[in-house]
Computed example of a mutant assay.
Amino acid sequence: MTEEEMRKRLAMLKVEHRDLDIAIAALVETGGPDQLQVARLKKRKLSLRDQMAIIEDYLTPDIIA
């Protein structure tokens, strides 16, 4: 995967992460009984965050001070 592809993937992950945040907030606001769905969305959101961290670590050069 090239650096440009990684940057595009990172941008897509950030959008999906933001969308999940909005979806979770909407479910919580409605007070629906579907806590299982909220838990699944939160788990997916954490997975996205982990993937973003891996890509960001790869894209950020190590600087020795």
Rank of each mutant, 00 (worst) to 15 (best):
G31V: 03
Y58D: 00
I63V: 08
R9H: 10
Q35W: 12
D34L: 09
P33A: 07
R7M: 12
K8I: 13
D21N: 13
R18C: 03
A25V: 06
H17I: 01
K43G: 04
D19K: 13
R7G: 03
A25S: 14
A53N: 01
A53R: 10
T30P: 03
Q35E: 13
M6C: 07
K43T: 10
I64H: 10
Y58Q: 01
Q51L: 06
L27N: 12
E4K: 15
D57S: 01
M52L: 01
Q37W: 11
I55H: 04
L48P: 02
G31N: 10
A53K: 09
I63D: 07
G32H: 10
V15H: 12
A39H: 09
V15C: 04
A25P: 04
A39D: 11
E3V: 14
R49Y: 05
E3W: 08
I54F: 03
K43R: 14
L36S: 06
I22H: 13
P33K: 12
E29G: 03
I55P: 05
D34K: 07
Q37D: 07
R18L: 08
I63Q: 08
K14P: 04
A65S: 00
T2Y: 06
G31M: 06
Q37H: 13
D57C: 00
M12V: 06
E3P: 04
A23K: 14
L20F: 11
A53W: 06
L41W: 15
T2I: 09
K43H: 12
A11W: 08
D21F: 11
Q51Y: 06
L48V: 01
I63E: 10
L36R: 13
M6I: 02
Q51W: 05
V28G: 02
R9I: 04
V28I: 13
V28A: 06
D21S: 15
T30R: 15
K8C: 05
D50Q: 11
I64T: 03
I55T: 01
L36F: 13
Q35T: 11
L41Y: 14
P61D: 02
M12W: 08
R40G: 02
L36K: 12
P33Y: 10
L36G: 08
V28Q: 11
D57W: 06
K8A: 14
G31K: 09
I24T: 04
L41C: 05
P33I: 09
M12Y: 13
A39N: 10
L10P: 06
E4F: 11
